[in-house]
Structure formats: C-alpha cells, structure tokens
Design a protein around this nucleic acid. Sequence first.
DNA 1: TAGATTGTTAATCGATTAACAATC
DNA 2: TAGATTGTTAATCGATTAACAATC
Lengths: 230, 230
Amino acid sequence: MAGREVLQRHVIERLPRYYHYIRNVAVPRGQETISSAQLAAWLRVDDTLIRHDLAKIGVKGQPRRGFRCSEVVAAIRQTLGFDREKRAIIIGAGRLGGAIASYRGFEQYGLRILAAGDSAPAREQQMLGRIRVYPLEDLEAVIRKIRAELAIITVPREAACEVAERVQKAGVRCIWNFAPAHLEVSDEIFVRNELLSVGLAELSYRLHHTRRYQRRETAAPAARSRRRAP
Amino acid sequence: MAGREVLQRHVIERLPRYYHYIRNVAVPRGQETISSAQLAAWLRVDDTLIRHDLAKIGVKGQPRRGFRCSEVVAAIRQTLGFDREKRAIIIGAGRLGGAIASYRGFEQYGLRILAAGDSAPAREQQMLGRIRVYPLEDLEAVIRKIRAELAIITVPREAACEVAERVQKAGVRCIWNFAPAHLEVSDEIFVRNELLSVGLAELSYRLHHTRRYQRRETAAPAARSRRRAP
DNA sequence: TAGATTGTTAATCGATTAACAATC
DNA sequence: TAGATTGTTAATCGATTAACAATC
C-alpha cells in the first residue's frame, strides 16, 4: 500500500515511462501482459532493471507470461499517487500556461488545475480554457479558496521568485516551476524546476559533437530542487 | 577545442545549470569569480564534483580566487556548442509552440527558429511572433529551404510520429520532442523527449509521500532517446 | 516435459565523495 | 606567512547488470 519504503529517484523517473508506454503502446495494441524484455527493449535498459523496479512497487509477474498490464498500471498509479487528486493553481496565463492548463492528458495523473493567476490586466478576469484567471493581487485568497497544494509557475523569470515566495506563504506544498529562475523557497516545500535549456544544451552538444548515435531511450530526471542553503 | 573526449551525460546535464547560475545569479551580483563551493552549495552537490566537471571542459581556477565567471561561461558555451548557430523549425504552432518560438532566452544557446509548420488551416500563413507559419504540406520544402538541422515538435500526440518521420527523411539531424508520443526514428538521428508527465509524476510522489524534504538542487536529465530496436 | 520468463542474490561499473597535496 | 581554494588520486557508494535458480 502507500508507504512502502522510499523509492530512489531513478525509479521514480522510470515508472512514469513504463506507465506511458503500457498505456499508449502496449494496451492499444491489445496486449494483456507485457514482458520485462519488451519494456527494456523500448527503454534501452536491461530487463533486470525493469523486474527490479516492478518488484519494488509490489507487482508480481508470471513466468512465461510477463506482467499483467492492468496490474502494472494500477501499481504505478498507486505508488506515484496518480489516483489521488492534486489541487493546483497555475500562475502565468500566457502561452505556456495556457498550453499546460488546457492539456487534458494530465488528468490521468490526478492533476486538477482549478484556477489561474496573471498580472497582465488584459488577461485578468478572462478564462483560460475552462479555468478562471484571477488578478495576481488575489493570489493568496484564491489559493486558500481552492485549497491548492501545488502551484505551477509559468510567469516570466523576473516575476518567478516573488510568486514562489507568495505561494509558499499561502500554504502550497509543491511547486512545478517552468520559469528559468532560481527560486528561493523554504525546505518545507518541494520544487521541481523544468529548466528547458538543459534539454537544449544536450541537443546542442549532440548536434555539434556527434555524427551517429547509439540507440537508447532512458528514463531520466529533469531539474529537481529543494530549497537552497540557509 | 572542439572534440575533447566525449562528456558523460551527467556532466552534459550539469553544465547548463552552471551556465545558468553564473549568468543569472553570480554575474548580476557583480561577481567576477565563483568558487566551486558556491556553485556546489547552490546545486546541492559536492564541490569536488564541480571542480571535476570544470577540469573536464578545460577551465583552470586560481587557488584562493575560484574560477573566473567569464572563463567558465566561455568554456561551457564552447563545449556545448552554444556559440554555434542551430537552425531549427518548429512544428505545431499552438500555444506550446508559440511559447517556445517567442521565448528569446534560447538565443543565448545558439537556437535560431527560422520557420514554423502547422496543419490547422486557421493558423496557416500566419506569423508566430516574427516566424512564418507554413502549411504542413510544405514541410519538406521548408526544411530544405531554411536548412533546418533541428526540429522542435509541439504537435498533438496523434500527429507526432508522422511529423517525426517526415522531418527525419527531410534531413533533420535532431528532434526536440514535446509531444507525449513514442517516436520511431532511425538510429542516425538524436531525439530528446521532454516528457512532462515525468515531472508531474515526481511531484505527485512527493506530494503524497513526504512531509518534509531534505534540500537539494540537482542537475538532472530529462528524457533522452535514440531510435528504438530495429 | 521443455522452455520462456520471473525473481533475487552477487558482481560490476561508474558516478560521487573523501583526502590531501599544490598553489597563490 | 597563513589560509583559502584548486587539482587530482584514491575510496566509497549506489545503480545497473550478470548469473542463475525458481516457476509455470
């Protein structure tokens, strides 16, 4: 159940890939079961690694059959908490914020974006898809009203730090930050920084340094952080 | 110069963070030099790791002074190829595509988005910021015309695979994929999958499993892949 | 049954950290 | 000079892979 031992970060990063592959590739193909070898071939890792990971989240396979897709999916959902609602506010109702807010795929991860905030007068009081956009002055009140536990930050860099401080004080427990800024938040709150330039950096390196590539699809983390030194 | 030995992936993922921190935090503060301890405290890693990384890209520090910011920045730019132009096309002129295309910060990484493609008639012939949007029928012609070596995919999942195949055949060498799809491309081409649900998965896990967090800011990769099994 | 696949312990590999001499 | 910080080799740690018995 909940509260198995703590998972290592690498495992946490791989599980959503298994989830994604099974739901979007294996199941649509009509597969009821999936072998560790199949997942491994896809993700370009050793099949033992897959079995280790699945054992950690308590899924049992059947010799000669593999793992039942439905069981793997259920175990991942349960382990990662996809089956529990995450009440979120998105701050920054620009194009990126709009893209995230209107993407329906995140629902299968339990994300519920209940409100948006934005400073630009032109955008205030507007709707972002089906989500209401509030002026930034009301940030704290809105967070409390919708009981947001997660804040998604899609404001420009200059505004990100202040927004982070405010959402933190208003009681949010996690931040998903898309602004290319270094947020200074307390230790109590978890921040995941999606620094897109890291992706660009890798592409740049590959583009300029390599001609051919070995194949590989790897589960790999993005920026995570906790608060900086006191 | 170019062509030092191949860097390990972890190093490639950390360098842009150093770059980002120095340019956005240290330099604006007026620092001319930066110590490995300062970078380490920020990124929550051991300072030895920083010195190892910087040694790998050929930066020399000065005892009691640290590393010159300008030298570190120059070395990272040169190593990762930020100082060389990357000609790109973005396919999918929706909100996410628009956000990426109009973000000016990528210029300091050498990214030049020269054209956009989109299938929706309403968007055809429009401009995306200062970038012209072409209909998808002309994809191959546009890629050849602008000599794109990088394709940024921001189309919906259903369209992603076909787009990937087409850009590949048209000669693009790298794909930066934001669609939550498994692209099937040849070994010759490098793909970086920015699967955002991985980030959401980690937040979900933290939100449901932890109360307090140790601090840490870690350089961490996102999805990378090379072509799948033949 | 034979054979494919899981499950798990042990070995390996590689990234990180420790230790400490060198340097300004 | 003394002291802070780099540079580098060696040790550690942890993730991945190998090996192989168990199972259906």
